[in-house]
């Protein structure tokens, strides 16, 4: 168990970051990481000893997030205060960084889940294409095509159609 602490503990901040990027709500994200760590502790002996610990942990976190988002979608979308239009209007126009951040988050929200997951794993978490493919249980070629589509869409939303992003953002997202 001591090698588990040695291998897993340094990865917790990155797990929190990925959970936060997926769920956005800090408390929900930490709940997810806690579930992930508890599962990792109970299944530590089941993991492949030659496998990468980070990929293994990220896959656990990802699967938990997917089932949680499915439950959430069934209940109806949860809208946090930051997502509400009033809150975004309250950001002063002079705060260029804040506006840019809001546009970025809005564009990220507008992505289909499958594209957002790939984009976050590769760009923010720095996973290789093969590692991302393993986490998501999809072929590497699919990772590449989703990544390309996700980036194109983000750039289009932020640069070209930025104004229409809030209107286009659906409250209920269908999970296929």
């Amino acid at each position: 168990m001591s090698d588990m602490v040695r291998l897993v503990e340094p990865l917790i901040p990155a797990l929190r970051r990925y959970a936060r990027a997926l769920l956005r709500d800090p408390a929900d994200a930490d709940d997810l990481v806690q579930d992930c760590l508890e599962r990792a502790v109970s299944r530590w002996h089941q993991r492949r000893s030659d496998g990468d610990t980070r990929t293994w942990l990220t896959a656990i976190l990802h699967n938990l997030a997917v089932s949680q988002m499915r439950r959430r979608a069934r209940r109806g979308a949860h809208m946090s205060v930051e997502d509400a239009p009033e809150a975004s209007l309250a950001v002063a126009p002079s705060q260029d960084g804040a506006l840019r951040h809001r546009d970025l988050m809005a564009a990220l929200d507008a992505l289909p889940d499958e594209q957002r997951n790939v984009l976050l794993l590769v760009t923010v978490e720095g996973l290789s294409y093969a590692e991302a493919a393993q986490v998501l249980a999809i072929p590497t070629g699919t990772v590449m095509s989703r990544l390309s589509r996700a980036r194109d869409r983000m750039i289009r939303l932020m640069d070209g159609e930025g104004v229409t992003v809030p209107a286009k953002r659906p409250l209920l997202r269908r999970v296929k």
């Binding site: 990027a21 840019r100 970025l104 976050l120 760009t123 923010v124 980036r151």
Partner: peptide, 13 residues
């Protein structure tokens, strides 16, 4: 885009 995304979630680390 990559830099923006990384810096958006960097505070969590």
């Amino acid at each position: 885009l990559g830099r923006d995304l990384r810096s958006a979630f960097a505070p969590v680390l």
